[in-house]
Simulated assay, not measured.
Amino acid sequence: MRKRCSCCSRKDIRATASPASSSFRITRCAHVKSIYHKLRIHSKQELVNIVDARRAAH
């Protein structure tokens, strides 16, 4: 079984039976994984920490 990305495993995302929305979720997860990879992070919390640190620096 493949490990799900953090965006897909969030409780606030409601699963629907619609193939279109399922496809959208898969695409969104692919984009999130790509962003995480480029930033060399693994979780949403790491992203929040980066944003907070940059805001504090300005």
Rank of each mutant, 00 (worst) to 15 (best):
M1C: 08
M1A: 11
R2C: 04
R2Y: 15
R2T: 11
R2Q: 15
K3D: 10
K3E: 10
K3R: 10
K3Q: 06
K3P: 12
R4H: 12
R4A: 13
R4K: 15
R4V: 11
C5Q: 05
C5R: 04
S6P: 08
S6Q: 06
S6L: 03
C7R: 01
C7G: 02
C8F: 07
S9G: 13
S9H: 14
S9I: 09
R10V: 03
K11F: 13
D12G: 02
I13D: 03
I13G: 00
I13K: 06
R14H: 15
T16C: 09
T16S: 13
T16H: 08
T16L: 05
T16V: 11
A17D: 15
S18L: 08
S18C: 13
S18R: 06
S18M: 06
S18T: 03
P19L: 00
P19F: 02
P19R: 01
A20I: 07
A20G: 02
A20K: 12
A20H: 12
S21F: 08
S21D: 04
S22E: 14
S22A: 11
S23H: 11
S23F: 13
F24Y: 09
F24K: 06
R25M: 05
R25I: 03
I26K: 15
I26M: 14
I26Q: 14
I26W: 15
T27M: 10
R28Q: 10
R28V: 10
R28D: 07
R28N: 06
R28M: 08
R28L: 10
R28S: 08
C29G: 05
C29S: 04
C29Y: 04
C29H: 01
C29V: 01
H31Y: 13
H31F: 12
H31T: 12
H31I: 11
V32N: 02
V32C: 06
V32H: 04
V32R: 02
K33L: 09
S34W: 10
S34K: 07
I35G: 00
I35A: 03
Y36C: 04
Y36I: 00
Y36M: 11
H37M: 08
H37T: 15
H37Y: 14
H37G: 07
K38T: 03
K38D: 07
K38I: 01
L39R: 00
L39I: 00
L39W: 04
R40V: 05
I41F: 06
I41T: 02
I41R: 01
I41K: 02
H42V: 02
H42G: 06
H42R: 09
S43Q: 01
S43Y: 02
K44N: 15
K44G: 12
Q45L: 07
Q45M: 14
E46Y: 01
E46H: 01
E46F: 00
E46D: 03
L47R: 10
L47T: 00
L47N: 07
V48E: 13
V48L: 13
V48C: 09
V48N: 06
N49E: 14
N49Q: 06
N49T: 02
N49H: 07
I50V: 05
I50R: 04
D52I: 03
D52C: 08
D52M: 02
D52L: 10
A53C: 05
A53V: 01
R54F: 09
R55G: 00
R55T: 05
A56H: 14
A56E: 12
A56D: 07
A57V: 02
A57K: 04
A57G: 00
A57W: 09
